[in-house]
């Protein structure tokens, strides 16, 4: 769905943030992980058309994105920003979520329906008239997720969605990612929670200092310990425990662990 060729970028005259990235994205749910400052947020802002590449090309669903405005592109790609304060600007929760659907020329009634449906997914359906700035950080993040889901784009990118969430909030996000995937959408997520990656994503890409250090099925990536260490990420906790106990292969979930633990014994 997305093809990235020779992509390079730097902010103003600063050193390069991304150098010569080559990537292709298909329907597989994809996690992007890597060190702070590796260029993950910058990369997705480029995909979204909010930043312009210095070199290289991005093709989304057969169309070169340079030829589209960010607004046109927003019918295809949705992005939940890392900092919710950067995304929120309306005066009520409902207006905030309806903003996107209305812009892509949805009828008002349909937009409202979509908005409420999205708010129900994140559990904010009872706070329609609240000013978003009165929400807590975790709720703001959920509101941002709802605003993007309501636009029903084919590609959805989350930039660190689990920030500030408790286990219940993480569960909500897990369910949302699964539902979107079942609808055939490409879900891409930047995230630092490795156990969440292991449980929820088919493919994992490791960024390091503006380059792709590793890319492949999640299990494969988490078996490359040297690469992970270099990128300042570590295998999921459950994988580490399985390793310590000498369980062969790369374990990704508690259920796998329990099944293997008994069989090894």
């Amino acid at each position: 769905m997305i093809k990235v060729k020779n992509l390079s970028f730097s902010y103003k005259q600063n050193p390069q943030v991304l150098s010569d990235i080559q990537l292709e994205f298909d329907q597989r749910s994809t996690a992007i992980i890597g060190q702070n400052g590796a260029g993950k947020t910058t990369f997705v802002k480029l995909l979204k058309g909010l930043l312009k590449p210095n070199a290289g090309q991005i093709v989304v669903k057969g169309q070169v994105i340079k030829e589209q405005t960010a607004a046109e592109l927003s019918r295809t790609i949705g992005l939940v920003f890392q900092n919710p304060n950067d995304q929120i600007f309306k005066r009520s929760v409902l207006e905030e979520v309806m903003f996107g659907p209305l812009n892509i020329k949805m009828e008002k009634s349909e937009a409202k329906e979509k908005a409420i449906e999205a708010l129900r997914l994140v559990g904010l359906e009872h706070q329609l008239d609240i000013n978003p700035h009165d929400l807590s950080l975790s709720e703001k993040k959920l509101l941002c997720i709802a605003s993007v889901i309501a636009m029903d784009t084919d590609i959805i990118i989350f930039d660190e969605p689990t920030i500030a969430q408790d286990s219940n909030g993480k569960e909500k996000i897990r369910r949302i990612i699964r539902t979107l995937k079942e609808k055939g959408k490409l879900v891409m997520t930047i995230i630092h929670d490795m156990d969440f990656v292991a449980e929820n994503f088919e493919r994992t890409i490791v960024f390091n200092q503006g380059r792709v250090l590793a890319d492949g099925p999640t299990r494969e990536v988490f078996s490359q310990k040297q690469e992970l260490l270099r990128a300042k990420v570590e295998p999921p906790y459950i994988t580490q425990l399985a390793d310590k106990l000498g369980i062969p292969g790369t374990i990704l979930t508690i259920d796998e662990f329990i099944a293997k633990y008994h069989s090894v014994k």
Partner: peptide, 16 residues
């Protein structure tokens, strides 16, 4: 510029 980004990210035309 932050708010403009938020707006065009969700379909409001701000360029042109």
């Amino acid at each position: 510029s932050t708010i403009t980004d938020a707006q065009r990210a969700r379909g409001m035309e701000t360029e042109g």
